[in-house]
Amino acid sequence: MSNLNDLTALCLPTGSRLAADETQSRLSLSLEGQPLLTLRLNRGPELHVQLLEHFSHPEGQAIWAACYWLFARDPDCQRLVWQLQDVPHEAVLSGLLIPTSVNGQYCCERTLFWQLPQPWLGRSLTGSYPQQMVITGGKRHPLRAVKPQGEVYRRFDARLGAWVSLRTLEIEQDLARFNRWQNSPRVASFWQEEGSLEQHRQYLSKLEADPHTLTLIGCFDDQPFAYFEAYWAKEDRIAPFYDAGDYDRGIHMLVGEENHRGPHKVASWLSALVHYLFLDDPRTQRVVAEPRADNAKMIGYMHNQCFHCDKEFDFPHKRAALMVLGRERFFDRCALA
């Protein structure tokens, strides 16, 4: 794992490279080798930031890049206090900066920064989808947006020193991989979905046609390692077991590649998966999961990522633990880097 104290560069999902020359009291940032801005830093209980010099990039982009650098550099940093001569209209309108009662002073809150969908989503569609209530199978729920295709989330994990990304599953591309993962004894002991290629093709085709479930492949440095199902809880079998909100999302998780197991990898991909779901629609207030109640290792990993166990309950096929993570709790304790 990378030491954040040694951090000198970060990569953006666009492919651009953000590089820094940082001392205790000064920070100079460049983007793709071109100077971006220079800041004076006053470190204390809050990090005070004064803009000394701004170069050719739009100011809003430069301020965002500086906030990203400073939050990624120090995951414990919760607030940046900016001193600016001119009103940063773009940054204020987006929620990146909040005006204070002091003239020329603005705050950037970590809890707000990580809720901004760009550039992690690339293109955000679901959050602007209008609400219309419909009834499916006797369940009343919002009409869901058309499911995305391709890559939906990408972020460089500075702590892990690797890209973590999510893309939609493509049956022809991913069937053999999915089949191998499901027939692994370790996976089969919890998923109980062993079978042939044709059985798994039918399984994935059914989910592909189901508007309430999105099938995803998790990647580290663009190498597939995991399979996830993200579902709308209101239409799911879990709905009768708790008071499901209209935009609650649920997750099923499978790590297929042995070399990507372990708590440090879980911390990266689980936080990325939850981050994606909260960004995908700002109306989503909770992410839930229902692992087997005896899957102590997975439940422990989820506790480490701020999920709590609301209760245990009985599905027809298993005793499950209802794991819940609220939006406010996730972003308040957000350790993304």
Rank of each mutant, 00 (worst) to 15 (best):
S2W: 08
A9C: 13
C11P: 02
C11W: 12
L12F: 07
T14I: 01
S16V: 00
R17W: 13
A20G: 08
S25L: 12
Q34C: 12
L47V: 15
V49C: 13
H54C: 13
S56I: 07
Q61G: 11
I63G: 00
W64N: 00
Y68H: 14
Y68V: 05
W69Y: 06
D74W: 07
Q78I: 07
R79C: 11
W82C: 04
Q83H: 09
Q83F: 03
V87I: 08
L93M: 12
L93C: 11
T100P: 10
N103V: 12
Q105K: 07
Y106K: 10
Y106P: 04
Y106R: 09
C108F: 07
T111W: 15
F113Y: 06
Q115V: 08
P117F: 02
Q118E: 15
W120P: 00
Y129A: 10
V134L: 07
G137Y: 09
G137E: 15
G138P: 14
G138K: 05
R140A: 15
R140K: 15
H141G: 14
H141Y: 13
H141L: 15
P142G: 07
A145V: 06
V146R: 13
K147Q: 13
Q149L: 10
L160M: 13
S165V: 01
R167N: 01
T168E: 08
T168G: 06
E170T: 10
G195C: 06
H200M: 05
Y203Q: 11
K206S: 13
T213P: 08
G218E: 03
F220N: 00
P224W: 14
P224R: 09
E229N: 05
W232F: 14
R237C: 11
R237P: 09
I238R: 00
I238L: 15
D243Y: 14
D248Q: 05
G250H: 03
I251K: 05
H252N: 06
M253P: 03
L254K: 04
N259T: 14
R261S: 10
L270S: 04
A272V: 00
L273M: 05
V274Q: 00
H275P: 01
D281N: 06
V287P: 00
A296F: 06
I299W: 03
M302G: 01
M302Q: 08
M302P: 02
C306F: 11
H308K: 14
E312R: 10
E312L: 04
F313C: 02
D314F: 13
H317N: 14
K318N: 03
K318D: 02
R319T: 10
F331L: 01
A335W: 14
A337H: 06
A337W: 03
